[in-house]
Design a protein around this nucleic acid. Structure first.
Lengths: 205, 205
DNA sequence: GCAGTAATTATGCAAGTGTATAATAACGGG
DNA sequence: CCCGTTATTATACACTTGCATAATTACTGC
């Protein structure tokens, strides 16, 4: 790390704006995931990004601004991940739905870090209308995608089914992330498929 | 509030230890629910409890000690609430289960404050083994109770069913608390009953 | 009433917080 | 090769944080 002589000014390279913003956001997300919002201080973020605290305010209006950007980035990434699952999925509607459900209750989606991140943002989401809007849109996008998959299987009341299936998925995600060792290897996966199957009245396994 | 002359020492009353601990814990929970762990500073807690900051360290070894006590109190209260639902419930197994499920997805269980509290504690729960143990026990207690109700309905694989039903409940709890206006009045309730019914293969409504 | 106890307040401190501003040095264009 | 731009570092400041300690005052038993 930055070998430097005492009394000498720390040497640096000029990275592009894009790169620096990414690094700072990534550092912030790391810290929030590990220790909650309180751990993401300007100094800690800067250190992890390999930068001096002052630089944060050069790229973001305030620390809150950085946090907001980090949240938006996180949400974008999550929805992208969810979409990616369907890329290589088969064409048969039921198989597509099964693949989607399976992905949602297994790593890397299910993982303590992700849940820590999610929990760390909740308060700001509740307080800040801008964050709330992002959250709402992200949730509805995910559910709509699920509803589309369910609909394609020929299920009647797809809205209610999507809400219910989404709830199962979220619940299992929650518990699998919070208590990873409380479940057997494929238990969550099996339960998820069976439950979703029961709710929409189709066999998924 | 405490009318006091400038330069005069603030007057006070000696409350019992029990009362003071309760007040401090309640204040801490309020603050965490509203603004996350960061909002629960010793000074803020003391002010809300109508006390000066120093007193906290008279009743608790440290602020962390107070937070731990607050978490334990919260969990106790939640399990008590869940148990209370079954007090006046009917005897018929299916009706008991339905009452339990219904209570779990409607206020006061579903509410933004409770979820904020829960989220606020997550990081400490993940980090501190003592808190983790409390969390685990609380979760399993709730699930066991649910499993008992399901079992009483004559369902075969009650463990898997309990995990799944618990997930539905948690998921709906989560979404109902986070996005209260994204659902119609009785929508969550109806969906919860229908889903649990589908999972265990019985009609609950 | 009076003294002793300890519950409660008051004060102070060192460390950490976000932010503003000034100093510097890396890079690009001439 | 040098010069201007600005990305980056350094420093400083006002404020907050948890905690330790000393000063007081409300209550209890006599």
């Amino acid at each position: 790390m930055g070998m430097q002589v005492a009394g000498a000014r720390r040497s640096f390279r000029r990275e592009g704006e894009e790169r620096r913003r990414e690094d700072l956001i990534a550092a912030a997300l790391d810290l929030i995931a590990e220790g909650g919002t309180q751990a993401a201080t300007v100094r800690a973020i800067a250190e992890r990004a390999g930068v001096t605290p002052g630089l944060i305010r050069h790229y973001f209006d305030s620390k809150d601004d950085l946090i907001l950007a980090a949240y938006a980035t996180l949400m974008d990434r999550l929805t992208e991940e969810a979409a990616a699952v369907l890329e290589g999925a088969p064409e048969h509607p039921r198989a597509r739905l099964a693949a989607f459900v399976r992905a949602a209750v297994t790593p890397p989606v299910v993982d303590a870090r992700a849940m820590g991140l999610w929990a760390g943002f909740i308060h700001r989401v509740q307080a800040d209308p801008a964050m709330r809007a992002v959250h709402r849109e992200s949730y509805l996008t995910f559910r709509d995608r699920l509803q589309g998959l369910i609909s394609a299987c020929g299920v009647a009341d797809a809205r209610a089914a999507a809400i219910a299936c989404n709830a199962v998925i979220d619940g299992l995600w929650l518990e699998g992330s919070a208590l990873p060792d409380a479940f057997d290897e494929d238990e969550l996966e099996t339960i998820a498929l069976r439950s979703v199957g029961a709710i929409i009245g189709l066999e998924l396994e």
